[in-house]
Simulated assay, not measured.
Amino acid sequence: MESGWKNHSREKKEKDLFHVIYKVPSGDGPYVRAKHAQLVQKDPEAAIVWFWKAINAGDRVDSALKDMAVVMKQLDRAEEAIEAINSFRGLCPKTAQESLDNVLIDLYKKCGKVDEQIVLLKHKLKLIYLGEAFNGKPTKTARSHGKKFQVSIKQETSRILGNLAWAYMQKSNFVAAEVVYHKAQMIDPDANKALNLCHCLIKQARYNDARFVLQDVLQHKLEVLMTSNQETEQRNYPWRWICSLSTAPCCQIFGLKFQDDFVEALERVMNEWAPTRSRRLPIFEEISQFRDQLAC
């Protein structure tokens, strides 16, 4: 009897360890089977079949819909994933709608649907304005590379504004992109958005303004370079290039025009990086002044 109990206990531990290693939920429903096919068997097509069964059976519909969309995106079936989310998100609770919007934005990017991105990003900003983002909470828990961290409303607002500005850049609407990047930087500045803002200004041939935007960023980066090792210096070489160009006159440099060198260096740096409360943020009052510029 004791031996049987020990075997049962060992089997339970092994089963629990299996779920931890593969990050598969416990149970035997269609959603669990879908995750098993996705993560253990590495069979995305079978996973999609089981995700559909989970949605139709009402088994963790929101998780099944999001996970299925991610798998479809990996299989270059983003259009199908968009249709699925738009068709079945009504079955999901209100608390799941924000994460579904985030998945939908990624799918729109995958399909090059810039106008749809803009509409959805503006909707997310409206929810923040109304105090309805994060389901009314001041922060939310996010995950990146397996690590959890807290995101504030302030950070989320700046991130969404940065994505909105990037969408305008894809439509070559650099005036609107510039306005939105300025707003994003006023809330939660970072070097990535500064570089993108600089790119907008260069596209408008406003090189002196571009230098001004980068002044603080370059100063900080130069301090890092002065204390960095050789490997870090090599990794930050594009920054050295931009620093040297930022103080050069708009004339021929090494046989090339300033704007040619500057844009090339800027794009090299941008390619290395990924495109980072109050209920009513003052920034929205300022954005409202630029509605005509933001309209497409």
Results as ranks from 00 to 15, higher is better:
3 S>R: 14
6 K>E: 15
7 N>D: 13
16 D>C: 05
21 I>F: 14
24 V>W: 08
31 Y>S: 08
35 K>H: 03
35 K>E: 10
36 H>C: 00
36 H>P: 00
37 A>P: 03
39 L>Y: 01
39 L>K: 06
41 Q>F: 00
42 K>Q: 07
43 D>R: 01
45 E>F: 03
46 A>Y: 01
51 F>K: 05
51 F>M: 02
52 W>A: 01
53 K>Q: 11
53 K>W: 02
56 N>M: 04
56 N>D: 11
58 G>W: 02
65 L>D: 08
69 A>V: 10
70 V>F: 09
70 V>K: 07
71 V>D: 04
71 V>Q: 06
76 D>V: 06
79 E>I: 13
80 E>V: 07
83 E>V: 08
86 N>H: 05
87 S>C: 07
91 L>V: 02
103 V>F: 05
104 L>F: 11
107 L>F: 15
108 Y>R: 14
109 K>Q: 15
111 C>R: 15
112 G>V: 11
113 K>N: 13
114 V>I: 15
120 L>H: 01
121 L>F: 06
124 K>T: 08
124 K>N: 06
126 K>C: 00
126 K>N: 06
128 I>Y: 01
129 Y>Q: 14
134 F>E: 06
134 F>Y: 14
137 K>W: 02
140 K>M: 14
141 T>I: 14
141 T>L: 13
143 R>E: 12
149 F>S: 14
149 F>V: 09
154 K>E: 13
155 Q>D: 15
157 T>W: 09
160 I>W: 09
165 A>V: 11
166 W>K: 11
170 Q>C: 03
172 S>K: 11
176 A>V: 02
177 A>E: 03
178 E>C: 05
179 V>R: 09
179 V>S: 04
180 V>P: 01
183 K>M: 13
185 Q>K: 10
187 I>A: 12
190 D>G: 15
193 K>T: 14
198 C>T: 15
198 C>L: 05
201 L>T: 03
201 L>C: 12
202 I>N: 04
205 A>Q: 11
210 A>I: 09
216 D>S: 10
217 V>T: 15
220 H>E: 08
221 K>R: 10
224 V>A: 06
225 L>D: 01
232 T>W: 01
232 T>G: 00
235 R>V: 06
236 N>I: 12
237 Y>P: 02
240 R>S: 12
241 W>N: 13
242 I>C: 08
242 I>S: 04
243 C>E: 01
244 S>Q: 09
248 A>P: 04
248 A>G: 09
252 Q>Y: 02
257 K>G: 08
258 F>I: 06
260 D>V: 10
260 D>F: 05
260 D>M: 02
261 D>F: 08
262 F>V: 03
262 F>Q: 02
268 R>D: 05
270 M>Q: 12
270 M>A: 03
272 E>W: 03
274 A>M: 04
274 A>P: 00
282 P>S: 09
282 P>F: 09
284 F>V: 10
285 E>P: 04
287 I>V: 12
290 F>L: 09
292 D>N: 14
293 Q>M: 14
295 A>G: 12
295 A>P: 04
